[in-house]
């Protein structure tokens, strides 16, 4: 695994690149979330979840909301060096992770969307106070990550990265929980 510093000269946000990928996870996420073709395919394939859990039936509306939320998230990330609010930006993924003091799996989303909750998630591992490694992200339409393959895959990626970091001896703590129910 390789790690990429997200903002030049700033130590506290990193993004992982898995060996079989061309680019790091954060770059990949925002390319997808700003690409109308990708979003059209995604929402066509997940229209039932969109209607069932968010009561949105116009694909164009879903894409517009996604583009807006992605833009806000992107702006927040770019402004992190000034705002220094990385710990407030990410929140623990589950109740279990709130109890873990190191290397928790975290999610970030745009918290202030009107009309409906934002479905965009950035997943990261918190290495220490104010230090995060982004492992991926998803458009999460279902209540749990386990409910759909694309969000389940994100859990697997998070756990792989966490295991790699543990295996590399970066951390001493061993109290992690493998199964979460967000």
């Amino acid at each position: 695994m390789e790690f990429f510093r997200v903002i030049k000269g700033y130590d506290h946000l990193w993004s992982v690149k898995c060996p079989n990928e061309d680019i790091d996870e954060l770059t990949s996420l925002f390319r997808k979330w700003s690409d109308g073709n990708y979003l059209l395919d995604f929402f066509e394939n997940n229209i039932e979840d969109l209607e069932k859990y968010f009561n949105v039936n116009k694909i164009s509306q879903a894409i517009k909301d996604t583009l807006e939320d992605a833009s806000e998230l992107e702006r927040m990330i770019l402004h992190i060096p000034e705002s220094k609010q990385l710990d407030g930006f990410f929140r623990p993924l589950s109740q279990d992770d709130i109890r873990i003091t190191e290397m928790t799996r975290e999610k970030a989303r745009y918290w202030n969307r009107s009309r409906h909750a934002s479905w965009l998630r950035i997943y990261a591992i918190r290495l220490e106070e104010g230090v995060f490694v982004v492992t991926g992200g998803a458009i999460k339409l279902t209540p749990t990550m386990q409910a759909r393959p694309h969000t389940q895959e994100e859990l697997i990626k998070m756990n792989k990265c966490r295991d790699y970091l543990k295996g590399s001896g970066v951390f001493d703590q061993d109290s992690f929980i493998d199964y979460i129910n967000e």
């Binding site: 390789e2 790690f3 990429f4 690149k17 680019i23 790091d24 590399s168």
Partner: peptide, 9 residues
Amino acid sequence: HQSQTPSSF
């Protein structure tokens, strides 16, 4: 363990 090339993000 950081990449030799910067993130494009």
